[in-house]
């Protein structure tokens, strides 16, 4: 075991898979010689060579189009999109192409591609760096969308994503990259895709979130405990497909739920979770399922992040509303 930050765990996952499978290729803007703008690929080109870990021209559509072509020749590409706000440049290659390839070829081609990309607020980035756009990806049949909240999950989920034979969008919250360390096994292990984790057990209300807001939820849960409210916190880990079994089981126990996301109310995936709960557990609910989200504006100018991003007090307020409904 070693103490790792999430970014170290991510590097470790790529190192593991580059070592395990000679078809794994890591590429993107500045990921080669420089080791990535966040050092996520540091040392990998030195260790595995330019043939396996390499820089590309500055063109996101070209990067993912090339990933598709490499997959058609039997490679297992792990391209990086420098910031997920740049995904608009490559929506066709992702949603119009790689997500569809198995289907459009009648099951004869597969796209074992893992697109890594940082996103997320609270770190003072310029325009279109921090936007939460996982909702756009979660709407695309053919993709899986994974968002880890801690180093242990990040390594296990990334190894599993790379091994998956269908395209995976692996979104890395920038605020979590170096915010804390935790014990991560040095050997390889996997965390199953499409499976949520119960991060804290509780009996009065279920808090469902993913990414950085999981930590905000845990902080809120501690404060709620002091007020006599026992909150169960579920980390989705995969936002497409969502592990509804774990959610429904929890809601049947607590009878109340609040869904949390950093994305705007009209975006993200919270509405999907609310809809599924009301379809499958309405008779177990003591109160409506509420959402904690950002407001429906564009992502804020840097100095306004503090008042715009959902925080633990907004979670506590919503929990109090469902408790007192």
């Amino acid at each position: 075991m070693a103490q790792m930050t999430m970014i170290q765990a991510i590097t470790d996952a790529m190192r593991t898979e580059l070592g395990n499978d000679e078809n794994v290729l890591v590429f993107g803007e500045d990921v080669g010689y420089y080791g990535g703008v966040f050092r996520a690929t540091e040392g990998l080109q030195d260790e595995f060579g330019e043939d396996r870990v390499f820089d590309t021209p500055l063109a996101e559509s070209g990067i993912n189009g090339m990933a598709i072509g490499l997959a058609l020749t039997g490679y297992r590409p792990v391209p990086e999109i420098q910031f997920f706000g740049f995904v608009f440049e490559t929506m066709d290659a992702i949603a119009g192409q790689m997500a569809r390839y198995r289907f459009r070829s009648g099951g004869t081609e597969s796209m074992p591609i893992t697109i890594r990309s940082p996103f997320g607020g609270g770190v003072n980035t310029p325009e279109l760096h921090a936007d939460s756009l996982e909702g756009t990806m979660a709407q695309m049949p053919g993709l899986k969308v994974v968002i880890p909240s801690n180093p242990y999950d990040a390594k296990g989920l990334l190894i599993q994503s790379i091994r998956d034979n269908d395209p995976v969008i692996f979104l890395e919250h920038m605020k979590l990259y170096r915010s804390f360390r935790e014990e991560v096994p040095e050997e390889e292990y996997t965390v199953e895709l499409g499976k949520a984790a119960v991060k804290r057990e509780g009996s009065d209300v279920t808090l469902i979130g993913y990414g950085a807001i999981v930590h905000t939820a845990l902080k809120a849960a501690e404060q709620l405990e002091e007020n006599g409210v026992s909150a169960e916190v579920i980390d989705l880990r995969t936002v497409s497909p969502v592990d509804y079994d774990t959610i429904i089981e929890s809601v049947k126990k607590t009878n109340r739920a609040v869904v949390l996301q950093e994305a705007q109310k009209q975006a993200g995936i919270a509405s999907n979770v609310v809809a599924e709960i009301q379809e499958k557990a309405i008779l177990h609910l003591e109160a409506p399922v509420l959402r904690v989200t950002a407001p429906d504006t564009l992502y804020p100018f840097t100095q306004a992040e503090g008042v715009w991003l959902p925080d633990h007090t907004s979670i506590i307020e919503k929990v109090e509303s469902v408790m007192n409904f």
């Binding site: 189009g65 090339m66 072509g69 066709d92 390839y101």
Partner: peptide
């Protein structure tokens, strides 16, 4: 691969196949 409907998509993919 089957005929590409999105005009241009086949071009970046062909670069990838040729690199492969």
């Amino acid at each position: 691969v089957s005929p590409q409907i999105i005009i241009g998509a086949q071009i970046t993919q062909a670069a990838g196949v040729g690199l492969g």
